[in-house]
Structures are given as structure tokens and as C-alpha cells.
């Protein structure tokens, strides 16, 4: 105790303003509230994550944004919807100032869809109105989003990451058609609903 007496910072605070038991009870109460809040937040993250399939985009695939058009996955001949052997489809898109290419994507309903996007210049955003599809498209990386569409129709696909002076004109569509009306694609065919 002698040591604490000499150290002015260690000197005991004057007691008696609030009874010590009361202080302890208040502290314990707040600790319980904080732990409860943490628990609720964790539970919300876990439950929504599992039930709504909400995942942070954790795909780290690197790609050179300046040479996308020279070959590889994002060459223009490979863009659009591709049919996979397991019955799912993969959609490949390029986001560039100020277009999505292709600007109209056709996918079948009630089918697993995997979107793969890359940016040719700056950061763009990929969002499908009315769905939980929402990711950033960062140049140099491949953004991947999985979903499936139950409702038919035309989904708007705006760029929601301000990308420059033409940003307001940058949006495209996803057209969901019944499974039977989706063209049967061989492994080397790609489709889109861009009017030629």
C-alpha cells in the first residue's frame, strides 16, 4: 500500500459518493448489456448469412484489366451466358466506362446462375434490383456472385459505384426466361439478348 500512496496516479479515489456495491452492480449490468448486444449482432450475421446466402465477395482471382480483350475468360467471344455440364449457367460480363458488355443478359429461371465480372478500367458496381446480388467490380480482380431467379422478367442492372461523368447512363438488363425458352447451348456457345 505504501507504494500506491507515493504514486499520485495510483492514489485511491475518494469513496462514498456512490456506494461501491451500486457501482459494481451498474458495471455488471452494462457488461451484460454489451455482451447481449454482441451476441444479438453475431446471431443476426450468422442467421442471415446462412438463410439468405449473404456472403462477402471473397473471390480473389487476379486478372490484368488492360488486356481483357486479348484472350482468356473475358474475351468478347466468351462473354454472355454459358451452359455448364451440371445444368447451371455461368454469365460473364465486362464492366467498363460506361457500359456493361453484353448489355442484355439472358438466363433461365430456377437454375443456379454464376455471374463472373471484371472491370476494364475503374471500380464499378454490380447490382440486380429486387435480388440480393450486389458486389463491387474492382479492376484487376474477378467478381463472382451466385444466385438463382425464381421470378421471370427483366431485372435492371445499374452500376451503383460512381464511375465517372457517364455513370448515369451505365446500366444493363438481366432477362429471366422460362427454362423451356432458354436456348439449348453447346459447350462452345454463348448467348445474350443483345439485339443484333
Amino acid at each position: 500500500m505504501a507504494e500506491t500512496e507515493t504514486n499520485p496516479l495510483r492514489r485511491p479515489l475518494p469513496d462514498g459518493i456512490v456506494p461501491e456495491g451500486e457501482v459494481t452492480r451498474t458495471e455488471n449490468r452494462w457488461i451484460a448489456i454489451v455482451l447481449g448486444m454482441l451476441g444479438v449482432m453475431m446471431a443476426v450475421i450468422v442467421v442471415t448469412g446462412v438463410t439468405n446466402a449473404l456472403h462477402p465477395p471473397s473471390n480473389v482471382e487476379i486478372i490484368d484489366p488492360t488486356t481483357l480483350h486479348l484472350g482468356g475468360e473475358f474475351a468478347e467471344s466468351n462473354l454472355g451466358t454459358a451452359a455448364e455440364p451440371d445444368g447451371s449457367v455461368t454469365v460473364r460480363l465486362i464492366a467498363e466506362q460506361y457500359n456493361f458488355v453484353p448489355e442484355c443478359v439472358r438466363v433461365p429461371a430456377d437454375t443456379p446462375v454464376k455471374f463472373r465480372l471484371s472491370s476494364a478500367d475503374v471500380i464499378h458496381g454490380f447490382l440486380l434490383v429486387g435480388t440480393n446480388v450486389n458486389t463491387m467490380v474492382v479492376p484487376g480482380f474477378v467478381a463472382e456472385v451466385r444466385t438463382s431467379f425464381n421470378a421471370l422478367g427483366d431485372y435492371r442492372m445499374p452500376c451503383h459505384e460512381f464511375c465517372g461523368v457517364g455513370h448515369q447512363g451505365m446500366w444493363a438488363h438481366v432477362n429471366v426466361v422460362p427454362k423451356g425458352r432458354f436456348p439449348h447451348l453447346s459447350t462452345t456457345e454463348r448467348t445474350s439478348c443483345v439485339q443484333q
Binding site: E61, T66, T67, H69, L70, G71, E73, A75, E76, S77, N78, A82, E84, P85, T90, K114, R116, V142, T187, T188, E189, R190
Partner: peptide
């Protein structure tokens, strides 16, 4: 990435802004 067969490669240009 899925490793399915790709269509015949078509490139718009040989130039890239590297």
C-alpha cells in the same frame, strides 16, 4: 473459374493500352 470449352477466340484489336 469453370474450365469449360471456350468458343473460337475473337479479339477486336491487337492493341491493349499497356
Amino acid at each position: 473459374p469453370a474450365r469449360e470449352a471456350a468458343p473460337t477466340l475473337r479479339t477486336p484489336s491487337r492493341i491493349a493500352w499497356t
